[in-house]
Design a protein around this nucleic acid. Structure first.
Lengths: 190, 190
DNA sequence: CCTACCGATCGGTAGG
DNA sequence: CCTACCGATCGGTAGG
């Protein structure tokens, strides 16, 4: 998930960009804003990246891959749907606690991706949703979960998880994990 | 909630702006985009509004007022916390179904408000959250609701309700209302 | 509501 | 990594 191939300076630029994109949004952030915050002249930014959009790609795509990989592992593991849901919650909370700025950008600014990157992103997201819903449906079939509409349940869960980065400074990870798990599983139980 | 004092043309401009702000975000939308969509020259937009920011104000503030007023009525009504929660869900769903574009902008773009308008907006939101949490806490005190942390429960509920505008084209209002109410109340029940 | 236009700022490049 | 700069686009105004 971390771009180990990039130079340290490039990493600083990307992380600073993530903070700015979170604060002001992708469109309202200028390369001049970014340059000022990292202490470079605007044009020098382009020694490390080739465009403003590349910054967004470098922030969003590693997370898309992280969630894709994490989902694959959980989806194919041999545990109950309930345990899988608990693992998915942990997957999201680990991202939120380790990279709160980047994960916010990943959640809120991905729509400014373009072309092939956007297509690839949407593809991964679609697959993620499909597997997530299948886990929920399996839990329902086995009688462990009870709900009417899997799309609505999924949205409630994902919105709650996507909110979690806001709570990073207020709760310890294990504490938030337990609260969210309890609430969501109760909503799904018969 | 609707600006009956504004000219019809101004209303068209504001509603078109809401659609564009939803599609591209406030910052990425230009007055030229807006003018093209309503069929005017860019400068003619300024015959109806005095700045781009006024558009955002005209979209966001009526909803802030709508939710403030709705919350006041529900908060002071003489019914159970559970019934109040059901009414709050309806308050959000009515906005989502009647004005899906504007309510999305209200939810996602309010941070581009500035100065006094931003302060006023945040004040109203703070009060709204306070009352919402008090209703939840009363339900807990009376033994009707069961949960550990009111802030986390509130966030789960509000994120689920804020998502509802995405579902407007997929479900009838009463259907979505029932699904969401059932899920949320189950999450809160003992 | 339009024509014509303004200064500011944008993403990005050339050349060293 | 900087100086110097480019064309495009931005929000907005003057004047009719």
């Amino acid at each position: 998930m971390t771009n180990t191939l990039n130079s340290p300076k490039k990493q600083v630029i990307i992380e600073t960009a993530a903070e700015l994109f979170r604060e002001k949004g992708f469109s309202a952030t200028s390369i001049r804003d970014l340059a000022a915050r990292v202490g470079l002249e605007p044009s020098s930014i382009y020694s490390h990246i080739k465009s403003k959009e590349e910054l967004l790609v470098e922030i969003c795509m590693p997370f898309a891959q992280y969630f894709t990989d994490g989902m694959h592992e959980i989806f194919t593991s041999d545990v109950s749907p309930k345990k899988k849901l608990r693992e998915l919650i942990k997957l999201h909370l680990n991202a939120a606690y380790d990279h709160p700025a980047s994960v916010t950008v990943f959640n809120d600014e991905w729509r400014f991706l373009a072309g092939d990157q956007l297509s690839h992103f949407l593809e991964m997201r679609k697959e993620y949703e499909k597997k997530f819903k299948r886990i929920l449906s399996e839990g329902k079939k086995s009688g462990k979960f009870e709900f009417e509409n899997v799309d609505i349940v999924f949205s409630m869960i994902i919105k709650t998880l996507n909110w979690s980065h806001d709570a990073v400074n207020k709760y310890k990870k294990m504490e938030l994990d337990e609260h969210i798990s309890t609430l969501l599983i109760k909503a799904l139980s018969r």
